[in-house]
Design a protein around this nucleic acid. Structure first.
Lengths: 156, 156
DNA sequence: TTCCTTGCAAATACTTTGCAGACTG
DNA sequence: CAGTCTGCAAAGTATTTGCAAGGAA
């Protein structure tokens, strides 16, 4: 494993370590590996917190990589279609957030309606809840994306 | 209990039974009882399914009551501030829904991402889930509004 | 008569789309 | 070189706001 040493003003011109694995995967699927696309992928991969499109956009700009918001949205949707990211919606937030979906086991989140902090929920299994809902309503719920809102310890 | 018989083309010119109780409540709080305001209140009160602002708007228009979308939003927020309605957000939906909040015991919903059907969840108590989250994250979650998404029986 | 509410119109926020040029493979 | 992808600009959708006229108490 080699360390990636980059010019701080030019960080994302080189593919980041984490993305290397996905470059081939994308190519195999017939997608091209462009700088903006990798920047989006990278950003999501490097960030724990589910991000809004404009947060992704801002982060990429900070790295001095030019990108357009529309491109961020387009790539987010491409990754969504591929199942590589998931789209989350928290109560009281009027925009979507996106998170890398390979982080199984902590794909559930709780967000604070006051300060906006978001933490992942280490729920080992919500199988019982799922089964309960299945029995009562017949719905097959997707607890893969499971967002709750409340107050974080600081804001209570 | 008397049945409310109304001209189908002129339904909401008379206050509906269900709202009579709230008219005084609003006045006591210093709010005026206007026709548009009552129409919003009524609509929410009469509908089981959580509605978007424009669904409320459409429904009111159908009753031949003129109203402006902005007025719907303003009243929805007023009712929200009073705690009379709650704001819900379902995954994959890019707009809020509003539901009368006095319907305790079925304030939890499951929506179908395919056909849009929404059913309420007769969860007797999610106290255990709440406690679990409290222990793990310190967050005090609001399960009062609790929206899940999945596939309804028909769409599976 | 007071002043809260409304309708209308315009503004804002988030997201999507069309198109011509740029870039990947 | 072919076809995908991007930036830019404009459109679309959801929601909010300013303001003068209208209506409730």
């Amino acid at each position: 494993m080699r360390l990636h040493q980059a010019d701080p003003l030019d960080m994302s011109h080189q593919p980041k370590l984490a993305t290397v694995h996905y470059r081939q995967q994308l190519r195999d699927l017939g997608y091209r590996c462009t700088r903006p696309r990798e920047a989006v992928l990278c950003t999501l991969l490097e960030t724990d917190r589910p991000m809004t499109a404009s947060e992704v956009f801002d982060r990429i700009q900070q790295d001095c990589t030019r990108i357009d918001l529309a491109t961020v949205y387009r790539n987010l949707h491409m990754l969504l279609d591929l199942g590589l990211v998931m789209q989350l919606s928290f109560a009281h937030e009027s925009q979507f957030r996106y998170a890398w979906s390979e982080r199984r086991g902590h794909a559930q989140y709780v967000g604070c309606v006051q300060c906006g902090e978001i933490v992942s929920l280490p729920v080992p299994s919500l199988r019982r809840l799922k089964q309960f809902i299945r029995n009562k309503t017949g719905f097959l719920v997707n607890l893969q994306s499971f967002e709750l809102s409340g107050l974080c310890p600081d804001c209570q």
